[in-house]
Structure formats: C-alpha cells, structure tokens
Amino acid sequence: MEPVIEVQGLTHVYIDAENTKVTALDNIDLQIMPGEFVAVIGANGSGKSTLARHLNALLLPSEGHVKIKGMDTMEEDNLWDIRQTVGMVFQNPDNQIVAAIVEEDVAFGPENIGVLPEEIRTRVDDALKAVDMTAYRTHAPHLLSGGQKQRIAIAGTLALGSECIVLDEPTAMLDPKGRKEILSTMLRLNKEKKITVVYITHFMVEAMLADRVVVMSEGKIRFQGTPREVFSRVEELERLGLEAPLAAKVAFELRKSGMKLPKEIITNEELAAAFG
C-alpha cells in the first residue's frame, strides 16, 4: 500500500525577526499510511505546527521532500491536488471560517475548485451530516461554540474531498466539552469514513486514543510508537517538557520502589488490574 504522506529528510530553515537562522525542522522522516490515526505531540516550539504546514504545501521544504500520495509538494502542478487530498484544520476556530453562513462556509472549498452547484450541495449536506452539524446549516458562525466552529472547519475539508485531515492543535482554544466533540468526531471519521488523521496536540489524553504517537522536540522526531509504547516512557517525556498520563507516572514510581508491574501501563484500569 502506498503511504498517504511520505516525508523524507525534511528540513525547514527560516530567518527570524532578529535575522538569525532558525532550523524549525531538522531532517524529519515520517510515513503515514491510509486509514491511520497519528497523533503528533511536542512542547511549544517543537516544530509540530511547521510540520503540519508542510503536509499540504503551505510551506515548502528547505531540504528533503514531502510527498502526498506520491505527489511531491515541490512541483507546482501538484499543488491543488495536494490541497484537495490533505485538508487542514487550524487552532483558532474563528480565523478559518470565511463565510457568514455555516453552509456557505462549507461550500467554500468545493466552490474554489469549480465543482458543479448540485454536486456542491450534495457534498455540503454530506459533510455537515458527518460532523453532526446539519441542524446549524443556516446559522451565523460567530454565534456557535468553539467546538461547533471547529466541526464546521472539519466539514469544510470533507466537502473538498480530503482523504487525509491534518489538525493543528484543533482543541487548544476549546473548553473540555469542545475538546471531546472534536476528538470523537475525528475518531468516528477515521473509523467510518477511513479518513487518515494527523492530529497535533499538546493534550496527552487526546493522543492516547491514536493508533500511533509521534513525539517531537526541537524540530526532530524523538521517538514514536503506539500510545502504550510512548506514554510508558515517563522520564523521557518529562525531559521533553511533556506529561505522561497519571497511571503511567504512578506505575513508573512504583516500579522504581521495587514493585513488580507489567510493562506499558498507561490507563487507570490497567494499573488497577495489576492490583486485582
């Protein structure tokens, strides 16, 4: 099977306001297969947002290559196909909604690529249904909650026909209810519509539900694996300014005190089971 996203030796260098060279991404290799749900975690400034922007050619590599279904982002002819294949959802719910009516906003993407009106209608209706926002079709976006606005943004990518959605800290500005809405929406789309998901977050609880977790710091991928593998590495995570789940931390401390516990405990239930 061909990967949806193939990142090879990606380096991103830019000149900052103080005229110094900053290496935001340093020789990154990453493959994401169709249908995967990959979480990317890392502290602020670890390069995770820069990586996201490379995945639909909003940024271009200083070195290396990013290929979306085999299409290199460096080739200009591929640009619009790449952006249709990989949809983006950004952090600030307010700043990515273009139109003053929900359904008009969802239609924005397909309108841009010249889809026929009847077809747009179908796509918009389907997309709104997929994110459970049909009831808000004719509402004004500024009256919606943060979670609802983000779901509109997700619908916008679906209407564009995206097979893969990259979400750049979509829940950072939301309340707990909104966070749950977005995460469960993405898990459902991943499962039911086989949408490939790249989910960038600094909430570890959210990353625990992914198929694979990629840990970044200082522009590099430090390690990756299943949530179980990643989150049981309590010490390394903390060194990178990240927090392991409570159960993993407690298990880690207990093991240090000499208690025999199974490896890779990350949930409360798993830890409790060891006491059963």
């Binding site: 789940p245 159960a247 407690v250 409790a272 006491f275």
Partner: peptide
Amino acid sequence: EVYKLADALRDKGLRLPKEITDAKTLLAEI
C-alpha cells in the same frame, strides 16, 4: 484524574483512605 485512579484501585480491593487529593499522597498510600 487522581480521584478516578484512586477509585479504580479501590474497585480492585486496594484499601485507600478517602482523602486522596493529589498524586503524591496516592503514591505514598499505595
């Protein structure tokens, strides 16, 4: 989370005092 973890442990028969409000206390008690 610490209340949830303490509850999960209690469910498995671990006897823990009621007043566990932080991870440190929980760890010490276990």
